[in-house]
Design a protein around this nucleic acid. Structure first.
Lengths: 226, 226
DNA sequence: CGGCGTTTTGAGATATCTCAATGGGAGTGG
DNA sequence: CCACTCCCATTGAGATATCTCAAAACGCCG
């Protein structure tokens, strides 16, 4: 989700005219860590927005549900990402660990109070949300325009870029139902599409179905129609 | 799109520690106006991001295209909305008038320079992008989870709330193809769905097909499954 | 009045969903 | 250590919502 780059001080690049005593990272270092088991919620829609969280380990699914229970995952948050930013006093989305995870808790009020007098921090938040917006738009294009195989291919490519670095093996760290709810498909279609990609020799699925080896990245990107 | 509330000065609510000489609205008042005919572009993906625009009149479709020409409209921008904000030096989206429109042009560099030393303005931009993000997420839920009739109903409800005030008559001010590309449907499905809603006596479609009267708002909201 | 772009409507094709059954792994308790 | 259970993934077969292709009607503008 929101990738706020680590730095030694929020004032590193440009001196602020409204200095504060404590940098974002300093606060982060002291913030309490919370451990979550798979499926445990970080927060739910409607909860008071007391904290902003930074993912330390694991994967957090940020999602919205319709009254009848259908669920759209908006984003997966990986280590380093921030979740829970917003302008309202209540959460408008829910967030749930897909596997056992750790998050660091930061007071939302304190963060936003800092930003009120610290242009550098406010601008950092602004730019971060712009990035988040770009990611959400990208998912919207995928869900609105692409076929099932294109969606799954795009998802795998995005996951590789976001979490795997140079490696061509990715760890899904989530269930098929999570992927389905991200891409606007059913679990059966996700499963069928993954086996189709395996049949096409574009990917390998390891025993357990959670680790995937991207054998033909160029082909996968092509299939994603990016 | 980004709804930056009008005010007399960006310092109205809280004195900034980093004052600037010129408020956002003052700049707006002096900014050049550009007139566009239907289908004319405000900017295209890849263009240098020289300006941020505020819509004065008409409707601007902000969209992204896939290599093969499929198009996903991300948002319609109405009078008062800002378009073209971002962190990169190039536009990552295209923007096109759906009907003849007017926009005001503001230097992107100047705006972002102001924000660097004006925490109040930076925070305002942050909050605006948060709202934009919320709208995009909402559309993502619609496109990812809802059926054709739910999507069209949700679109009509959102349009009414956003542009019609108290009135129950809305002006689409766009083609069926624009609605289709917003909702991830085809023009035929949009057309059929609108006539279905008319048959159900939930809406009336005026001669010309561009003005729609929402006869049964409660039912429409229910159909949208919101 | 003619022509063009757009919308509507129809009929058939198809991608994806739904429902159902099977199988594998992980954890639990005997 | 072996059943047993639960959860999840896979696979199949049939249903269906939406798409595609095609034609006709409409409305606007020159």
């Amino acid at each position: 989700m929101l990738a706020v780059q680590s730095d030694q001080s929020v004032h590193a690049s440009r001196p602020s005219l409204a200095p504060t005593g404590v940098s974002l990272d300093e606060r982060m270092a002291h913030a309490a860590v919370r451990r979550l088991v798979a499926k445990e919620h970080v927060f739910c829609e409607g909860d008071d927005r007391e904290h902003v969280f930074r993912v330390e380990d694991g994967v957090i699914a940020v999602y919205k549900t319709l009254p009848d229970g259908r669920r759209q995952i908006i984003d997966f948050a990986y280590p380093g990402d921030l979740i829970g930013l917003g302008v309202l006093s209540e959460h408008v989305l829910s967030a749930q660990a897909t596997v056992s995870s750790r998050v660091r808790c930061l007071s939302a009020a304190a963060l936003e109070r800092m930003a009120e007098t610290d242009a550098s921090l406010a601008l950092k938040l602004y730019k971060s949300v712009c990035q988040e917006l770009a990611a959400t738009r990208s998912l919207l294009v995928t869900v609105g325009q692409r076929s099932a195989i294109e969606r799954v291919a795009a998802f795998l490519v995005a996951l590789q870029r976001r979490t795997a670095g140079e490696s061509s093996t990715i760890n899904l760290a989530m269930r098929r139902s999570d992927i389905a709810d991200l891409l606007g498909l059913t679990i059966e279609t996700v499963s069928r599409t993954l086996t189709k990609l395996r049949t096409m020799a574009v990917i390998d699925i390891e025993q357990g179905g959670t680790r995937v080896h991207l054998k033909d990245m160029a082909r996968l990107i092509d299939l994603a129609n990016e």
